[in-house]
Computed example of a mutant assay.
Amino acid sequence: MSGAWPVDPQVGDDGPEFWWPDDHSWVVTTDYDLLSTYIGCSVTTAERILRDDVLEALPVTAQTRVDWYADRPA
């Protein structure tokens, strides 16, 4: 994957909670209360992210829990 880009100084030290390009072809969100970043993108892009050896990435669905207890058995 390519390198990171600087965050606009107006956003502050924590960065944006949501960001996307003008064409809205993908979205990235990092909830300030949680430890994960989520990427909504095409299947092709998701497959590239999941294959990347540098990133820790897991696939999720609309039913995947997104809270502090998501990784605990039901």
Rank of each mutant, 00 (worst) to 15 (best):
V60N: 07
D8E: 09
D67G: 14
D23W: 04
V28T: 08
R51N: 15
L35A: 14
W5M: 12
L35N: 13
P21T: 01
D53Y: 03
D23P: 02
A57C: 10
H24E: 12
V27L: 15
W5V: 14
P73W: 05
V60F: 05
D67H: 09
V54K: 14
V7F: 07
A62G: 11
D52E: 09
V11A: 10
H24N: 13
T64F: 00
D53R: 15
P9A: 06
D53V: 11
A74P: 11
Y69M: 14
P73T: 09
L34W: 02
L58N: 09
R65Y: 09
V43M: 03
A70N: 06
H24F: 12
M1G: 14
P59N: 02
D13V: 13
A70G: 14
L34K: 03
A46C: 10
A74F: 07
Q10G: 05
T37Y: 01
V60P: 05
W20R: 14
R72V: 14
R65A: 13
Y38P: 02
L50V: 08
D13R: 15
P21Y: 08
T37K: 07
F18S: 01
V66I: 13
L55Q: 08
G15K: 00
T61E: 09
M1P: 05
S2M: 07
W20D: 05
D71G: 15
Y69H: 11
M1T: 07
P21D: 02
A62L: 12
D22W: 06
Q63D: 15
Y69P: 00
L55N: 04
P16E: 04
V27W: 04
D71L: 14
D14L: 14
D52F: 00
P16V: 04
D52I: 02
T64A: 08
R72N: 09
V43Q: 12
I39G: 06
P73G: 06
V28C: 09
S42K: 04
